[in-house]
Design a protein around this nucleic acid. Sequence first.
DNA 1: TAGGCCATCTGGTCCT
DNA 2: AGGACCAGATGGCCTA
Length: 212
Amino acid sequence: MAPHPSGTPAVAVTHETEQPFPVASTEEVTCIVSSPPSPTRGTGGCVEAEGSGCRSATRKLRARRGGRSRPKSESALSKQRRSRRKKANDRERNRMHNLNSALDALRGVLPTFPDDAKLTKIETLRFAHNYIWALTQTLRIADHSLYGLEPPCEEMGSPDGGSPGDWGSLSSPVSQAGSLSPATSLEERPGLQAPASPAYLRPSALAFSDFL
DNA sequence: TAGGCCATCTGGTCCT
DNA sequence: AGGACCAGATGGCCTA
């Protein structure tokens, strides 16, 4: 399965702080650019009063009404709500794009062939988890073979020491059944066998003798 | 056509 | 008040 081969704005996102994607509509743009009515400045008549220099009077009026925000008409309220919602939507979209950018960066450092289908989000996370685990084990075993240390037994569960169960894995994320270890999941996907070919990604390579 | 994946919208909650 | 984060809902696209 190749998720949306065309029209994936998230893939093109490279910079987090910039606006990496076209904002949906011009209506939305104007709504976002033009800041919503600020409660401290008030709207409509309030602005006129302040602009004409009647600040103390305005302040008294506000105090009498019991707060910074003056009551608005129903239409003004709904307009403000819509404006806030659109701004929130825009931020949320941006946030998700940033998240996808990070995910793409992660895909970029994982060992897959260029012509492979793009890993899904969950596959990317699980693949990365197992990959890190395998690399950690590689380093550990290399250290022990170099310095003749005792073989590590107690920390084989998870590289970060966290609960392997978080990833649906057992003692070894690589050999876990059911969840997406690179070996299993990618074999399930036609055209994605290649990433599983490295020795450290095969369940049979748990001895890690292949890549020492 | 069903199911998987994804982007987006939305309302709620927490924090500053 | 406003932003960040989250989870649920929804609809589109694609593949088996």
